[in-house]
Design a protein around this nucleic acid. Structure first.
Length: 576
DNA sequence: CCCAGCACGC
DNA sequence: GACGTACGTGCTGGGT
């Protein structure tokens, strides 16, 4: 065990780790005492100074404390430092203790230390075009701010450590979140290759199609207007063309023109389908096709996302700048975008995803005998559900019955209501109620689980995942039925979604460790909640597939098997 | 600069 | 009478 502690912070030129140049290093080894080392802009000189601290940074016996350590880890990696040793991130610690509060240092310092830190704005000015770079400031101005960060981080660590114990999330912190951080760092730094040429072609085709649709819409409306404005679309559809008598309105009094509403009105006027297509195309062009190529890093030639470890209420990761967890997959045009995600030159794209992990987690958490039996027999759960509800042999289940049962299964995970299911299946409330009643007759322990989840939330004020991750639900006893309903659905969903998130995190850590131990050069590059993606060297194909599936399926032992499906391809679409 | 509405993913 | 299945990120418009 280590008894040495190093609290560290870096001052840089960019909030993006991949682009950041070091401006200074801060250190603290005991409370109320910290040091700041300015780093010159010239790379050779910078490396010389950083090198002085390399033995400390890379000493595996020294505990490394930081606020958002993944950032420092990546910045330092670009200066040939491989930060080693157990990690202790104050931001992540606080996320486990209070997932839905803010985790920035300024806020935590006030709460836990009753101390007001120097705000970054006081140094470099408010965010915006005129914000100065840390590089432009004299070290005599920076040192106080920078050293304070290292000190405050160390003091926060000392406050948060007993809290972790009190809130029973030590295992989660030390066994999952801290080991995961360097895994995410490596994924972010590896990045993803993008076929920008194919996207350029797709852009030309779709932009032309968009122009045609645009003109056609104006013709039908009798005038031009901004189709990207929901307000103007509403006016054209419901005030001018009057395609429906009483149109649905939002709480702000605007007409609802969402996909959901417009789908229903497709047969009222041709313009509706055109507007839907226009919306879809502008979304694909604006968010993916024309934007992603601009985000390819000129130095690495790759796209580098950020996997955020402290954002979601349930324990899932999120991805941003750019978000690579919402790349289209449905529709012909969407598929073209997936195709543009390619492996390293000479490599294969490998994708592995959990099969129905949330339903399997629900089977485990509820201990529902029938659901466990279905999974253990390797049956199609949705078809088996339909067979039970409609009381017929599984081979006689119709496509429609299976679809309804599938929607019911997903609805259950989300804590659906009779009304909600009726809406989504376009069936009567009576039929929806029968469906749900039939569901709970088939899976009675699932019903019990839902009641127990709500009860736990009411008694304890929070619910937990299998690994002890908490979600607080202060609204669970609200007098307002709507507000309370939200909390109740969260009580049902959070343990399921959160446990699935915990499980894939465990798998990621183990895969990463085995790649290292077994000398695998292939890289894990993306996580999309129940799916992991890799760029794989052809000669490692067999070993990678075996390791990934083994670690995903054995990440935890539940009352039902965990199953992962996988595939290789020359791009993300093919591999999926 | 912030919010609403919308659309993409799981 | 309103509400009504979880979790996210990012774009544009429109008002401040």
């Amino acid at each position: 065990m280590t008894n040495e502690i190093l609290s560290l912070d870096t001052e840089t030129t960019s909030t993006s780790a991949i682009d950041a140049e070091l401006v200074g290093l801060s250190f603290a080894v005991k409370e109320f005492e910290a040091f700041y080392v300015p780093i010159p802009a010239e790379r050779e000189k910078a490396l010389q100074i950083v090198n002085i601290f390399k033995p400390a940074y890379e000493d595996p016996k020294i505990l490394k404390v930081g606020q958002n350590l993944k950032y420092d880890l990546e910045v330092l990696r670009n200066y040939n430092i491989q930060l080693q040793g157990p990690l202790w991130d104050t931001m992540i610690a606080h996320y486990l203790i209070q997932p839905e509060l803010r985790h920035n240092m300024d806020f935590m310092a006030e709460v836990y230390l009753n101390y007001k830190t120097i705000h970054i704005d006081e140094l470099i000015g408010p965010r915006g075009k005129n914000q100065r770079s840390m590089r432009d400031l004299s070290p005599t101005l920076v040192y106080e701010y920078a050293a304070e960060d290292a000190d405050v981080t160390l003091r926060l660590k000392n406050k948060l450590e007993p809290e972790l114990k009190k809130f029973e999330c030590e295992d989660l912190f030390y066994q999952i979140e801290m080991p995961l951080m360097p895994v995410l760092a490596e994924m972010e730094m590896s990045g993803v290759c993008l076929d920008t040429e194919s996207l350029k072609e797709t852009s030309t085709i779709l932009t032309n199609r968009l122009k045609d649709i645009e003109h056609h819409i104006y013709e039908q409306a009798g005038h031009s207007f901004n189709i990207a404005s929901p307000k103007q679309v509403g006016a054209v559809l419901f005030d001018e063309l009057k395609i429906v008598e009483k149109a649905k309105k939002t709480k702000t009094g605007q007409y609802v023109t969402s996909e959901e509403v417009l789908q229903q009105l497709k047969n009222k006027h041709e313009i509706v389908a055109d507007i839907l297509e226009y919306r879809g195309l502008t979304k694909l062009l604006g968010t993916y096709i024309d934007t992603l190529p601009q985000l390819v890093n000129p130095r690495t030639g790759h796209i580098h996302t950020s996997f955020n470890q402290t954002v979601t209420a349930t324990g899932r990761l999120s991805s941003s700048d750019p978000n690579l967890q919402n790349i289209p997959i449905r529709g012909e045009d969407g598929k073209e975008i997936r195709k543009a995600f390619v492996p390293e030159p000479g490599c294969l794209f490998f994708s592995a995803d959990y099969s129905q992990i949330e339903l399997r987690v629900m089977a485990h958490l509820s201990n529902d005998q029938e659901m466990i039996r279905v999974f253990n027999e390797g049956k199609d759960l949705h078809a088996a559900t339909a067979a039970n509800i409609y009381k017929k042999p599984i081979e006689k289940v119709t496509r429609d019955e299976r679809t309804k049962s599938k929607r019911a299964n997903f609805g259950i995970i989300y804590g659906i209501t009779v009304f909600g299911l009726a809406e989504r299946l376009s069936i009567s409330r009576d039929e929806a109620k029968q469906l749900i009643d039939g569901y709970f007759t088939t899976f009675p322990e699932v019903h019990d689980y839902m009641e127990k989840a709500k009860q736990t939330a009411r008694q304890k004020g929070y619910v937990t995942t299998l690994y002890g991750r908490r979600r607080y639900l202060p609204d669970i006893n609200s007098q307002n039925a709507t507000v309370r309903g939200f909390a109740e659905r969260n009580a049902i969903n959070a343990p399921i979604q959160g446990t699935a998130a915990d499980i894939i995190k465990v798998a990621m850590i183990r895969i990463h460790n085995r790649f290292k131990a077994e000398g695998i050069r292939s890289k894990m590059i993306l996580q999309v909640h129940d799916e992991l993606n890799f760029s794989v060297y052809p000669e490692e194909q067999g070993r990678v597939e075996a390791i990934v599936l083994e670690e995903m399926q054995n990440a935890i032992s539940l009352k039902v098997p965990l199953v992962a499906d996988s595939g290789f391809g020359k791009n993300w679409l093919e591999a999926h």
